[in-house]
Structures are given as C-alpha cells and as structure tokens.
C-alpha cells in the first residue's frame, strides 16, 4: 500500500463523509486523522483501505458520541454565525440551510445515515452491506426507504418554515 497516495486520494472524500456524519469540523478532523494513523499500523491492500477507513471513521465517531454523550449537540451543530451585521442575512441563510440538513439527517437512524452518506461517496451496495452488516440484496430497499425518510424530514422542515 502506498500510504501517501492513499492519503492524498482518500482524505478529501473521507473528511467530507466525516463532516457530513458529525456536523463538527473538529470532530471530522480528528476522526479522519486517527483513522489514517491507524491505517499505518495495518498493511492493507489499497482496494481494502477505502472501506476500512470509512468503517474506522464511523466507529470513531460513534465512540465519541457514546463517550461524551453529546450526540444531540453534534446533530444540531450549526456553523458559527458571524457576529457583524454586514451580510448577516446571507450568513443566517447559510446557517439555516446547514441546520436544516443536519436536522433532516438527524431524523434518520444511524444506520440509514451512514448508508446514505456512503452511497453518496460512491460505495457499491456490496461494500455498504458489509459495513452495515446487512444483505447486499437488501440495500436497494433500505436506500430507497431512507431517501424517502430524508425527503420527508427535509420537506416537513421546509413546510414548517
């Protein structure tokens, strides 16, 4: 395994995945860094490194939630809002957009959230199934159901607003 190449190729998507999962840039930084550090200790073939890293990031994130009991805060995390009034409307709009997505993601089960985010990163059903411990033939139905759930949460929020 060429670690540098793996790191360079996978870091952006893995960080994006972690940020979407956690909603917290610092958490995303830390869990991704920790995952790559652990990768150094495993001599994995490059084709196995990618799903392995996503599993590790997911588990590290889950551990953090369990250990620190701050799930609610993370799911409700919002980007810092500038304190100055200039362009405040745009800043508020961005913050609301982010919060809305996070609330909709928070309405999903942890499994569904991970599944949709992995699908979004281009993972195949077989890989998702392995990570989630479900049958590959079930993934299509689970994805469709989870997407509908997200759309409902997202749409409901839209109507409420």
């Amino acid at each position: 395994m060429d670690f540098q190449t793996t790191y360079r190729d996978l870091y952006p998507a893995l960080h994006r995945f972690a940020l979407r999962l956690s909603g917290d840039p610092d958490v995303a930084d830390d869990v991704v860094q920790e995952a790559f550090t652990r990768l150094l200790e495993h001599d994995l073939p490059s084709d196995e490194a990618r799903p392995w890293l996503y599993v590790v990031v997911t588990n590290l994130y889950r551990d953090r939630i369990r250990n620190r009991e701050r799930r609610g805060r993370l799911l409700a995390a919002q980007p810092p809002v500038p304190e100055v009034p200039e362009a405040a409307d745009l800043a508020v709009e961005r913050a609301e957009r982010v919060a809305r997505v996070r609330r909709a993601l928070g309405g999903l089960s942890e499994r569904d959230r991970r599944m949709l985010l992995m699908r979004e990163e281009g993972f195949k059903y077989a890989e998702i199934a392995e990570v989630l411990g479900v049958r590959p033939t079930s993934v299509g139905a689970l994805v469709a159901r989870a997407l509908k759930r997200f759309a409902r949460e997202y749409g409901t929020l839209d109507e409420a607003e």
């Binding site: 979407r20 840039p25 810092p80 800043a91 961005r94 957009r97």
Partner: peptide
C-alpha cells in the same frame, strides 16, 4: 428523492465552506 438528497448535501458543503 435521490437528487434532493445529493443537492441538500452539496448545499450543506458549500454553506460550510462559505461560512
């Protein structure tokens, strides 16, 4: 529905970056 999800995430990423 799938496109809605993708679009929401893209919007989320862009908002984070612009913030």
């Amino acid at each position: 529905t799938a496109e809605l999800f993708t679009g929401a995430l893209v919007s989320y990423d862009e908002s984070i970056m612009r913030s």
